[in-house]
């Protein structure tokens, strides 16, 4: 929509790439650790996340099961790691597939203007007005419990934000005299974009990506909770929360674990971009 741009009408000083500060360093460290866990997966604890032992259900942490066992006697540590694989790869993928076309279309709209701009903008508006929940639910219903449907649904609702941000920023940059001069000098669009646009929108896009990744991770967990997302016995944080919530009273350490994983992931993402400020 048109409204958000109104306040940002006055040009701001161009931001340099932000310096790494302690909080951001912590964020990056956490992210790296999470990525490491996800890459190593359940092998890290040498347990099978699907192996049940019904009579050893809901055991507290022990040497054999570092984080205890769930309601079906499966190893919690192995399941959390397997869930990390799923959530993080989903977050990275949906950010990439939403970010790339969103950014490129945004630049195209700003560069060409006119009908291209109008067409792309009204398309983005229409997608925004489609209830995002509807889109995700429909895709999830087409292929119940499948991973790709979730990913496609989330990705489809996320791209608009990249588009709108890039378009708005790029329009300001392209209107600047320096850019006009470069155009007159006959520099290629690619060069102009790299020299003038990337420093302007880069940090903002990174922040949007971190926000998007956080949204994706929480959305998957939330969908798992209303049994729309991936289905049991897949180890996914949201599904695990749903499955373990009934035992929150007698075994609170179980439900706390996937919640803690989610909190740490979102925390790491926000810290790494320096807070909660949207560009």
């Amino acid at each position: 929509m048109t409204d958000q741009t109104q306040t940002g009408a006055m040009p701001r000083p161009r931001r340099a790439w932000p310096r790494i500060r302690p909080a951001r360093g912590l964020g990056f460290t956490l992210l790296a650790l999470l990525a490491l866990c996800a890459v190593a997966g359940p092998d890290l604890v040498g347990q099978d996340p699907a192996k049940q032992s019904l009579l050893d259900a809901r055991q507290p942490p022990s040497a054999a099961n570092l984080l205890g066992t769930d309601h079906l006697g499966r190893d919690m540590a192995a399941r959390l790691l397997s869930g990390a694989q799923l959530s993080l790869s989903l977050a990275v993928l949906s950010v990439l597939t939403a970010g790339l076309p969103g950014t490129l279309l945004g630049i195209a709209a700003a560069w060409y203007g006119g009908w291209t701009d109008r067409l792309l903008t009204s398309f983005a508006d229409a997608v925004l007005a489609l209830p995002g929940l509807l889109l995700v639910l429909m895709l999830a219903a087409i292929s119940p419990g499948s991973w790709w449907a979730l990913y496609a649904g989330i990705s489809l609702t996320l791209w608009v934000e990249y588009f709108r941000y890039t378009r708005q920023r790029a329009r300001i940059v392209i209107a600047e005299p320096a850019v006009e001069a470069s155009r007159l000098l006959g520099l290629t669009p690619a060069l102009i974009i790299r020299r003038h646009l990337v420093p302007e929108i880069g940090p903002g896009l990174l922040t949007i990506a971190a926000f998007g990744a956080a949204t994706a991770v929480t959305a998957v967990a939330a969908l798992g909770f209303v049994s729309v997302g991936v289905r049991p016995p897949t180890a996914e944080w949201g599904v695990m929360m749903t499955e373990l919530l009934p035992y929150w009273r007698e075994a609170p350490f179980l439900i706390l674990q996937p919640v803690a994983c989610l909190v740490i992931t979102v925390l790491a993402l926000h810290l790494s971009v320096g807070g909660m400020r949207r560009p």
């Binding site: 049940q52 019904l54 079906l72 016995p233």
Partner: peptide, 8 residues
């Protein structure tokens, strides 16, 4: 849950 148990 029972389906998961049967699977195993």
């Amino acid at each position: 849950l029972m389906a998961a148990a049967l699977q195993d």
